[in-house]
Amino acid sequence: MATKQSHRWWIPLLGWLVACLLFFPIFWMFITSFKTEVAAVATPPQLFFRPTLENYVAVQTRASYFNFAWNSVVISLGATILSLLLAIPAAYAMSFFPTKRTKSTLLWMLSTKMLPAVGVLVPIYILARETGLLDTRIGLVIIYTLINLPIVVWMIYSFFKEVPKEILEADRMDGASTYQELVHVLMPLALPGIFSTALLSIILSWNEAFWSLNLTTFDAAPLTAFIASFSSPQGLFWAKLSAASSMAIAPILIFGWVSQRQLVRGLTFGAVK
C-alpha cells in the first residue's frame, strides 16, 4: 500500500507530532543530563541553558558505574554468544534435515517462552543460592541464554530456510563434512540474519529487568539494577541519573533502530511478516 504522496497537509503534521510526543520523554532525559542539578529541577523548566558535561564526569568518576556497565556488557554478550553456539547447530539440523518431529519441537521450544518468570521465581532463587550462582554474572548468563534460546533458534532456523538447498548439495558432492558445510558455506550466507538475531538477543538481555533485579545485589548487578537503585527518594540527583540513563540506553537504542525489521520477525515468531 505504498500510496502516492498524500495531499492532505495534516498528515505530515500529525505524524511528526506523534513521533515527537512519543520521543519526548527520552529527549527530555537526554537534555536534563546536560544541565546542572539546580537547573534540572528549576521552575519553570528550562529548554535553553548552558550545557555542562559535569554529570557525565561525575558518573564516570564513580567507579562503580563502570562495574555495572561492564556487567551489562559481559552478561548480554555472554548470553548471546552462548545461545548462538547452541542454536546454530540446532537450527542447521532442523532446517536441512527435518524429521517428523521438527515442527513440534520448534513449537514446543517457543512454548517455553510462555512460562511466566514469576511462576518460577522461588525455585530459581533457591537453585541459584544453593549452587552459589546468586549475584554472579554466570548465573544471569545461564538464565538469559535459556530465556532467549527459543527465539534465537527460531530466527536462525527461518534464515537458514532461505538458503537454497542446491548450494549445500553441490558442496556435499564435493565431499564437504558437516562441520565444513556449516562453517564455510552456510554461515557466510546467513551472516546478516545471524547478526540481526544477535542484536535482538543483546537488546533483550540488556533490558531484562526481572531476573536482574531479583537475583543480583551488587557484584553482578547490570545497569537495569543500578538505575533501579535511584528509585529511593534522591530527588536532587536527576541530572546525574539522566546522564547515567542516557549512557545506559544509547547503545541499545541504536541497535534497535538498525534492526527494527528483523525485530518484527523475531518478536512475533514469524507470525507477522
Partner: peptide, 9 residues
C-alpha cells in the same frame, strides 16, 4: 524508540 529503553529507566 521507547520500546528499546530499559524498563527501569
Amino acid at each position: 524508540s521507547p520500546f528499546f529503553v530499559m524498563p527501569t529507566v
